[in-house]
Design a protein around this nucleic acid. Structure first.
Lengths: 233, 233
DNA sequence: TCGGATCATATGCTATATGATTTTTCAATC
DNA sequence: GATTGAAAAATCATATAGCATATGATCCGA
């Protein structure tokens, strides 16, 4: 996100005409964050003009961002009825998404154990250390921090596994975003932190099979932690 | 509060609406097909205005389609330089893409053997039959038909496996489109037809392990057939 | 031949028009 | 009097045209 989005109120409409070329507001990032934080609740309409006005841009860049968000599965477009945010995942969808993760993430964790560069190992260890001793709060901001940490760690592991196709396929699931939308009132779990540490320990010690197994265990647990929060489906 | 009683019906939209409101041209489909057929060569610029004029629409729907195509990895956007089609896959990218397929398609083929409905089994068998005895030509149109058959068969298997997340992740790789761009001068292979038939035989006979193994074999072979056509990387 | 100025072209955006949809209003009926 | 249904108004999504700016190529002079 770039700038000037903490004030949802009126921006002066580009007086004089000098400022129209100044800043490219990251409409995509703004909308993704707004959906993440449930500022735009699930299954609610996204008013293109309202977004455009609140960001001080016109409709065209908003439409472009929404087209991308639809590819990401965060909004859906109905002809002549505009865009709506998607529903929260139900239990069936969680099972399907986690099954997908179980196919690619243990494999990727194993590859990371084999292929990670020293710098990548250090980044993984740093991510673990930064949360190993952190307080585990239960307020919104704490949970958001924790969710971001979770997302970063998994992304680091994928990146270290050396397969860009798989990494992008994983990113496009936006699994952490969907999980956050379900659990944004929840709290960070010490169990998750421990499971993350175990995965990274195996990767750092170049234990391919152990890393894959630890990731599989972690995914099964995280799925089971999430399922009770979702509707049946 | 407005009361305006007059203004009788006398405003039927009638004519006028016909010309400009005719049909929503499928810009996305047009561009995807154009890239597929190499009418827009790899790594070449896509002139938004030219596309708009040739399709008889304005720039806005073209921009929206290009935003979606970028999410699909078929074009890339450079700021103030517009959109370019992506390069052909190189050997490293083929290996990465096929590795991804090897993670999800054998699993999905196995699930299809377990879960496919009778209608889905029939659709699979029909797809096989329609090409089992077909002539295997080497001209452009024949190869295009064959590629479409290949894409349909894999899509049917994914659909029968009962996991929409995995199905969408697979679709978004556009692996058949990338393969076609590399091999569009090639010819359909009898070997591929036979491998397809073997996979479907296992699925129809509810042989989960056999279906997965047959799919894995098929993927390895198709990868090895494709690699010589790509640049090193 | 090389460097710099000039100009044509394309991009990204804004402003606006058009028509579909949704909401509100209001009268008629039960 | 409450409720239903239709008509009008308002709202909103989509599309179009046009403008300001950045880019890249051409041309000129040294």
């Amino acid at each position: 996100m770039v700038k000037s989005m903490s004030s949802p109120i009126a921006q002066p409409p580009t007086a004089g005409g000098m400022s129209s070329r100044m800043v490219a507001v990251d409409v995509y990032g703004y909308l993704a964050a707004a959906i993440l934080r449930n500022e735009i609740p699930p299954a609610s309409r996204v008013n293109i003009n309202a977004v455009a006005v609140s960001l001080g841009v016109s409709a065209t860049p908003v439409r472009e961002a929404l087209a991308r968000l639809e590819s990401d599965g965060l909004v859906t477009q109905l002809h002549l009825k505009g865009y709506r945010t998607t529903e929260l995942l139900n239990q069936r969808e969680i099972r399907e998404l986690w099954q997908f993760r179980m196919l690619i993430e243990p494999y990727s964790a194993g590859n990371a154990a084999t292929l990670a560069t020293p710098a990548q190992l250090e980044a993984l260890q740093h991510e673990i250390d930064s949360f190993a001793s952190a307080p585990v709060g239960s307020d919104f901001d704490s949970y958001q921090d924790f969710s971001a940490h979770d997302a970063r760690l998994h992304a680091l592991i994928l990146a270290a596994s050396g397969n860009d196709v798989i990494t992008r396929a994983f990113e496009r699931t936006h699994c952490h975003l969907h999980a956050f939308r379900l659990a944004y009132t929840g709290s960070a779990g010490r169990a998750t932190v421990d499971e993350h540490a175990a995965i990274v320990d195996h990767i750092v010690s170049r234990d391919t099979a152990g890393a894959g197994a630890a990731m599989m265990t972690h995914l099964a647990h995280s799925r089971d932690r999430l399922l009770p929060l979702a509707k049946q489906g």
